[in-house]
Every structure is written in C-alpha cells, then in structure tokens.
C-alpha cells in the first residue's frame, strides 16, 4: 500500500507583512519513483500555489535545489522519497539570504566569490584567432575538469561550521575554485598570488577540518583531498615567507 507522506515545510514570505516564520504540514500520497521535485510541485499545484522553492534542470546538474532535507543539505531533485521516512522536514539552506520558504539567494553569494578569488584565467598572452590552440596534456585537462565539476549548489557552505560563523569564509566551494586555477598551466598567477587569496582565516586557515562539505557534496567532489593539499601548499608558502626564500 502506498505510504501517506507528511511534509513539514518551512514557510515565510518576507514580502507579506502578515507572514511570520513557521512550519507548515502537507500530506501527500507516495507514488512510484517519487522525488522531492515531483512532490513539491504537486504540493504547489494541488495544495498551496504560493509555496516557493527553486528547481531548474531537475537532473542534478545545475545546483538550484539545495535545501536541508531531514537535517542534511542536499539536492531535492535527485532525492527519492522511498529513501526517506514517512515524515520529511524541509528547510531552506542556512548562510544564504532567504528569498521565501525554501528559496534562497545563492547567486549573490557566489557572484561575490568570483570577484574575491578572481575566478578567471590570469594571462599576459593575447588570443590569436589565426593560431592553432596551445597544446595541453589530456591528463591535465581531466584533472582541471575534476575540480571544475562543482555545481555551486551551496550544500557544502550550508554544512560548514566556519561558514556559519564567518560570513567572509570562502568555504569548500570557494577554496576548491582557487585550486582549479592553481593547477591550470594557462593561469600565470604565482604561489604568492594564491597565498594572498587563500592564506588567511577567510581562506584555507579558516577550515576547522570538520569535513561535512565532503559528506554532503552531491557531486562527490574530492574536497577533503583538495583542502588538505591546499593547506599544505599554503602552509609551505607561509613558512617560506617567514624564513625568507
């Protein structure tokens, strides 16, 4: 027999003067292959058309639908209800500014990050449209892509102890982003340049090593390795700076 699911959903519309933050309960009969994407849309279309949440690709690729699902940040689109108990509690991701209900503003947070870490290739070369492309070993390209796979869903930020305390902390997504450029031979930034971005409490030294980021990452990014690698690298740079070259 199909289960009757109970959804406890955080509700608050900051644009409605009569709205106050509260939890609201919805019931839904479980169907085959039900995901939170389908469930939330059904609740909106059949029960409360004002319910706010964010989905886009609904295929685990775009990172829109991060939310706290029974206490754990994750992507709602690829969460199947059959993997959850009868009672499902949904909260918006913390750290990011709330837009309403389950919808948060990850866009502004990440856009600021791009400027902070200057997340683009720094090169003195100019592009020559008539020249053949510069060569690159395929293994190098694959290693860059491995770090480029982050979908900026914000789950690692929401699960991060430091990010909850320090609003300027880059978080695993931000630190990993710097790591992506650090291994890219096209980027001419020096170790010292990267140290200026990462070598502070806002960067790699702010990480307390709790590593929830790696646990909750829906793309299974190698965040633990990445944080360890950058901490060592920045530690060595710090020592070099201290003792002179």
């Amino acid at each position: 027999m199909a289960r009757n699911l109970k959804f406890n959903i955080f509700r608050y519309n900051p644009q409605d003067p009569e709205s106050t933050p509260h939890m609201e309960t919805f019931s839904l009969e479980e169907t085959d292959s039900l995901t939170l994407f389908i469930a939330l849309n059904r609740i909106r279309e059949e029960q409360d058309p004002s319910l706010q949440f964010d989905f886009c690709c609904r295929a685990g690729i775009c990172g829109s639908c991060g939310m706290v699902i029974n206490g754990r940040p994750g992507l709602a689109c690829h969460t199947k209800t059959k993997d959850l108990p009868d009672e499902i509690t949904l909260l918006p991701l913390p750290v990011f500014q709330l837009v309403g209900d389950l919808s948060v503003d990850t866009g502004s947070w990440f856009r600021e990050l791009y400027d902070t870490v200057e997340s683009w290739i720094h090169t003195s070369k100019t592009f020559d449209p008539n020249a053949q492309e510069e060569r690159m070993e395929d293994a190098v390209a694959e290693a860059i892509y491995e770090l480029d796979r982050c979908i900026e869903c914000g789950c690692c930020i929401a699960a991060c102890g430091t990010a909850r305390m320090r609003p300027d902390f880059l978080g695993a997504a931000g630190i990993n982003k710097v790591g992506r450029f650090l291994i890219d031979p096209r980027d001419e930034r020096t170790e010292q340049d990267y140290y200026e971005i990462l070598g502070t409490d806002m960067g790699i030294f702010g990480c307390m090593g709790l590593l929830a980021c790696e646990d909750v990452c829906p793309k299974h990014m190698p965040l633990q390795n990445q944080l360890g690698f950058l901490r060592r690298k920045m530690g060595i740079t710090a020592l070099k700076n201290f003792f002179g070259k």
Partner: peptide, 11 residues
Amino acid sequence: LVPSRRSHSSA
C-alpha cells in the same frame, strides 16, 4: 531567472 551558471546551457 536563475543564477547564470544554473542556465540550461549547463545541462
């Protein structure tokens, strides 16, 4: 409508 990197090009 969404943060630019969530645009459907990404899929």
